[in-house]
Amino acid sequence: MRDVTLGSTGITVPQNGFGALPLQRIGEDEAVALVRAAFSGGMRYFDTARAYSNSEHRVGLALEGVRERAFVATKTMARTPEAFWADLEKSLAELRTDYIDVHQFHCVDQAYAPGDGTGMYECMQEAKAQGKVRHIGVTAHKLEVAFDCVRSGLYEVLQFPLSYLSGPRERELVEECRRANVGFVAMKGLAGGLIADSRAAMAFMSQFDNVLPIWGVQRESELAEWLSYMDDTPSMDEGLRTFVERERVELAGDFCRGCGYCMPCPQGIVINQCARMALMLRRAPSSAWLTEQWQRAMGDTRRCTECRACTARCPYDLDVPSLLRKNREDYERVLAAGGA
C-alpha cells in the first residue's frame, strides 16, 4: 500500500485511515481494542470529532502510550470563539494529549477567514501559535464551500465525501487540492452504506495519490478487511472497473447518502434512512428493513408537511419530501409482494 502525504502538512501515512465515528455505538472495551488493533495493523491516521459523543475519549484511551507515533484529527462544531476554546480544551482532555495534529472546523457553511467578523479563523491561528493545534483543517459537504476553502489558501487539509459514486465535480475538487497543496481526506468512502464492496472502494481510492480515505469501523470483521489491504492493495482492474460502472448506472441521479444533516425532522421522521429505504432494500435485501419498527418509521413519512426545513439543510440539494414519498411507495410495494 502506498503512503499519502497530506499536502503541506508533511503528514505521511498509509492510504488507509481510521474513521472513529462508529466507536460511539459499541462498548468502551471493544472500541479501545478496535483502535489498538488498527494501530497494530498499520493504520496511523485516526479521525474523530467533539460531536461524536464518547469517540474522542475512546481514541485517547486506545492511543495512550503510542500517541507520538499516530496522527489524530478531530473537529469542532463551534460557531463562536467561546465555544471553540471550550471544545478545544475538552478535546485535548478526552484525547489525553497536549496537541491535535489536524484540527478541523466541522461541516462548515462558509470558509472562515481572518477579518470575516466571526473570529473563528483567528481562534485556529492562536491555537496553532500555542502549539495546541499543528495543522488547520476543515470539513464540508457542500461542493462550492469546499472549493472556497481550498482556494482561500487558509486550510492545510480538506475533508470531503468521496466514493466511486461521486461525480466529475468531486474529482475536480481532488485535483484542486493537489494544485493548492492541500491534503484531501475522503469521508463517506462507502457512500453512507450504499457501497458494500470494500475491495472496489479501496481500488477506487488507490487511483489517487493525494487522497487519504478514512473508513468508519465498528466491528473486528470490518477492520480485518481494511487491514488486509495493507499488503494486498486492490487496483482498479477491468473486472472492478466494470463492476463500478454498473454500480454508478444503478445509482445514477439523486439519492440520499444518509449523512443526517437534514435532521432532526419536526415531525419525527427518520429522514436519513427513510429517504433511501428503496435503495437499501434493492441492494441488500434484508428482513432487517422490513421489521415492524421500520414499517412504522416508513409510515411516519406520511406526516411530512413539506415544511422543507430538511431541504434547506441538505448539503446535496435533494428534494427530500419527494424522496420520502417515492421511497414509501416503493417500500409498500415490497411489503405487498411479501418481502424484498
Results as ranks from 00 to 15, higher is better:
residue 126 E to Y: 03
residue 200 A to H: 13
residue 187 M to C: 08
residue 91 S to I: 01
residue 189 G to Y: 14
residue 109 D to C: 01
residue 146 A to H: 00
residue 118 T to H: 05
residue 83 A to N: 06
residue 126 E to N: 11
residue 195 I to G: 15
residue 202 M to L: 10
residue 159 Q to E: 08
residue 127 A to V: 01
residue 189 G to M: 13
residue 111 A to N: 10
residue 105 F to V: 03
residue 184 F to E: 06
residue 166 S to Q: 14
residue 134 R to I: 15
residue 202 M to E: 10
residue 87 D to S: 09
residue 150 V to L: 11
residue 172 E to M: 14
residue 92 L to Q: 10
residue 98 D to F: 02
residue 184 F to M: 10
residue 201 A to Y: 05
residue 134 R to E: 13
residue 196 A to K: 10
residue 123 C to A: 11
residue 126 E to T: 00
residue 182 V to S: 06
residue 165 L to I: 15
residue 136 I to S: 08
residue 182 V to E: 00
residue 158 L to S: 06
residue 160 F to R: 01
residue 80 T to P: 10
residue 147 F to L: 07
residue 155 Y to W: 00
residue 127 A to H: 03
residue 81 P to D: 01
residue 97 T to I: 11
residue 94 E to Y: 00
residue 84 F to G: 09
residue 204 F to Q: 07
residue 197 D to P: 12
residue 179 R to V: 08
residue 178 R to C: 10
residue 158 L to R: 04
residue 115 G to N: 02
residue 122 E to N: 02
residue 96 R to C: 04
residue 158 L to Q: 07
residue 143 L to Y: 11
residue 138 V to K: 08
residue 81 P to K: 08
residue 100 I to C: 02
residue 176 E to C: 13
residue 181 N to G: 13
residue 195 I to F: 12
residue 178 R to Q: 13
residue 140 A to P: 04
residue 187 M to R: 13
residue 162 L to G: 13
residue 131 G to M: 14
residue 186 A to D: 14
residue 165 L to E: 08
residue 88 L to Y: 02
residue 198 S to N: 12
residue 151 R to T: 07
residue 89 E to M: 07
residue 94 E to I: 00
residue 133 V to Y: 12
residue 195 I to D: 15
residue 186 A to R: 09
residue 146 A to K: 03
residue 125 Q to N: 05
residue 201 A to N: 07
residue 189 G to W: 12
residue 173 L to G: 14
residue 91 S to C: 02
residue 161 P to E: 14
residue 87 D to T: 06
residue 164 Y to T: 02
residue 124 M to L: 10
residue 90 K to I: 03
residue 125 Q to H: 00
residue 118 T to L: 03
residue 187 M to V: 01
residue 85 W to Q: 11
residue 107 C to M: 00
residue 89 E to T: 06
residue 202 M to V: 14
residue 150 V to D: 00
residue 99 Y to T: 15
